[in-house]
Design a protein around this nucleic acid. Structure first.
Lengths: 203, 203
DNA sequence: CGCGTGATTGAAACCCTTCAAGTTTAGTGG
DNA sequence: CCACTAAACTTGAAGGGTTTCAATCACGCG
């Protein structure tokens, strides 16, 4: 019934992040997590639904985005392998989500519910530490993004993105990256052209 | 020596947020927190220092901001009464902070070090829950701000700000609010003029 | 092969910034 | 308490970066 390799990716990840894989923790993982495949463009969370899970990407690429009144999408986050993605406030408050999450590539995803996270926190101090660290890290990251949006030009933001997410640059379509950067696809195209003109290393 | 009213504001706050004030918790508060006054314009944290404390505002108004290469300030957060403010990643990683924190008004601040937070987490499950909730809430809030910066006009962002922080609107100078919104003081002035022309309720 | 989606390019329009000057407000010392 | 000065706010005109709209090109997939 129980196949030990089903959650290998998250175990390896935890192990790398100093979350101790005690027998108790392993048992919790095997018995409470589920794994699911999503094909390209498949939706994991729709606006208006409540977000029951935190998703851990074992393989593939996901994205979280919002849609505003005028129907425009705004990418909040990309999640490649070894990333978590979820609408945390919707999970915690059990409220309806303002976000959508879908698959940019065919993806293998591990589904984590809040009960699991609570139990894991109870039985593993090292996970608790990791979780705290991860949350604070995430906040730091959001602060940097806000600062960039407040002060940097489209070109600067794109250069930043190239540095921080070189792999996503290759895998996500340009219009999604434009949406993440807060510019139109046309503008991103022009930014890239200008960088090429200035002898920037082409991707 | 120990005056019971020194930390009344944070006790009341915790109590309102369902953090149980057991004798043990009260003892921890009295013995590990400190309280300090800051006068207007006084700096609590400088860029390049490591942020040792999380600040709880008992009275007054603080702000966190970054300064970019060109010397421009960008306000990340305002913190009026009953708000926490700190460079979380600097506290956690014990690294040098990229932020500054200073007082917009004469302020009474309760200083909280990470040891206190860890101990409180250990002895109080209700605090642990509160802390998790607060962190997730903060993330949700940052997401909303990013979405606004990605899609809304200066006017829309200002109207949002008026709705969410009516009290800060009265207490922070306009150029700081402009900095928070990601526009110049001149632009904010013009936005306000335009709103007045359209018969908007003046502050 | 053709259709649709994504990327590019151009021209006009728009929002916001910049710079410069003037007005108001607030804080300080006499 | 008034006068003075600096800081904050306002206003105008010019300029820049980005968007919008429209047309074209490139590519992948059925």
């Amino acid at each position: 019934m129980k196949i030990c390799t089903m959650f290998q990716e998250i175990k390896t990840y935890f192990s790398n992040k100093s979350v101790e894989l005690t027998p108790e923790v392993e048992k919790l993982i095997e018995e409470n997590l589920t794994r699911k495949s999503f094909s390209k463009n498949e939706v994991l969370l729709r606006q208006g639904e409540s977000c029951k899970y935190t998703f851990f990407v074992a393989k593939g690429l996901l994205r979280a985005y919002t849609i505003n009144q005028s129907g425009k999408e705004h990418v909040l986050q990309f999640a490649p392998e070894e990333w978590f993605i979820s609408d945390r406030s919707s999970v915690l408050l059990e409220e309806y989500s303002e976000q959508c999450i879908d698959a940019i590539e065919d993806s293998e995803v591990i589904l984590i519910d809040s009960e699991f996270l609570e139990k894991l926190s109870e039985i593993s101090v090292s996970f608790q530490r990791f979780n705290m660290f991860a949350l604070n890290n995430h906040i730091h990251h959001l602060h940097k993004r806000i600062t960039a949006l407040l002060s940097a030009t489209a070109e600067e933001r794109y250069l930043d993105f190239m540095k921080i997410y070189p792999n996503i640059l290759q895998r996500a379509p340009q219009w999604m990256i434009a949406s993440y950067l807060g510019i139109t696809p046309e503008s991103l195209s022009r930014v890239r052209k200008e960088l090429a003109r200035k002898n920037f290393i082409p991707d």
